[in-house]
Amino acid sequence: MKKVVLSIALVAAIGLVSCKNEAKKETPTQTEQTSTTAAAVTESTFGVRGNCGMCKNTIEKAANGVAGVTKAEWDKTRKQINVSYDENKTNIDDIHKAIAASGYDTDKVMGSEAAYENLPGCCQYDHEMEMSIKGEAKEDPNTH
């Protein structure tokens, strides 16, 4: 009887060792690596002529309409826009051109004359007005 009990205990012990070894076996796993190119975000500020809140909406809409632009904020008082864009998708010249196509002069590109003529009266700015005003910019009380 002792032999039977010892035999059963031996078989059980071998089974446990065998199970432990199977649990330790690792199957090779495949990991997939994907490379992602980080967006090359660039910030830029440049001059844009305009007068009022309607100008602000149109200028920002034109800039934000360029694929790759992530932010565009036009400062009515300083007559300048701050833009952030992915340089893998667009460039600063395309942003200037888009704003000019909406009728507004930038410090690089003259606005489309046809688009300018279609702007509301309050948005038809002086083509000689200063842009990218530095220091203390005083708002013109005659603009909106």
Rank of each mutant, 00 (worst) to 15 (best):
M131W: 01
N142W: 07
R49N: 00
V5I: 14
A114E: 15
D94F: 12
G103F: 00
E139K: 14
G15I: 15
G68H: 05
T27I: 08
K79T: 04
T106L: 09
G47M: 01
Q33M: 14
T29Q: 14
I8A: 14
A63E: 05
G111S: 08
E22L: 13
D86H: 04
H144K: 15
V41E: 02
I14S: 11
E32I: 15
L6A: 08
K76T: 13
G135P: 05
A114R: 06
Y116M: 01
A100Y: 11
A13K: 03
Q80C: 00
I81T: 00
D75A: 09
V4K: 11
A72S: 12
E128N: 06
A39R: 00
E22P: 02
G65E: 00
V66A: 04
V11C: 12
K71I: 02
E128S: 09
K134F: 11
D126G: 04
E113N: 13
A67R: 05
V48Y: 01
D75Q: 07
S35Y: 14
S44T: 13
A63V: 02
T90P: 03
L119Y: 03
A39G: 00
K20S: 11
E26C: 01
G121C: 02
V109P: 01
Q124R: 15
T42N: 10
N88F: 05
S18P: 01
Y125S: 02
M54H: 08
Q124E: 10
T37K: 13
T70M: 05
T90Y: 07
M54F: 06
S7R: 09
T58Y: 09
I133D: 08
Q30R: 08
V69N: 04
S18H: 12
E32K: 15
S84T: 12
E73S: 12
K89Q: 14
E26H: 08
D107V: 08
Q124W: 07
A101W: 13
N21L: 15
I14D: 07
G103N: 04
E87C: 03
N57W: 07
I99D: 01
D94Y: 07
I95R: 02
A115K: 09
V17Q: 11
D126R: 06
E139A: 12
G65L: 01
Q124K: 15
A63G: 03
H127M: 03
A39W: 00
T45E: 11
M131S: 03
K76Q: 14
T70A: 09
A63Q: 02
G53M: 06
Y104L: 05
D75P: 03
S84N: 06
H144R: 11
G68M: 05
A98V: 08
C19L: 09
V11G: 03
E87L: 10
T143N: 11
E113Q: 11
F46N: 10
S102V: 13
L10Y: 06
I92C: 10
E130T: 14
T37G: 04
N118G: 01
I81W: 00
A23C: 07
E128I: 00
V11M: 09
M131F: 01
M129R: 02
N91T: 10
K61C: 06
S132P: 01
V5W: 13
Q30T: 14
D94P: 01
I14W: 12
N82L: 09
H144I: 11
G65Y: 00
I99Y: 03
V5Q: 11
A13H: 04
P28F: 05
I92H: 07
Q124S: 07
C123V: 07
G53N: 13
I81S: 00
G111Y: 03
T31Q: 11
T77W: 09
T29I: 14
L16Y: 14
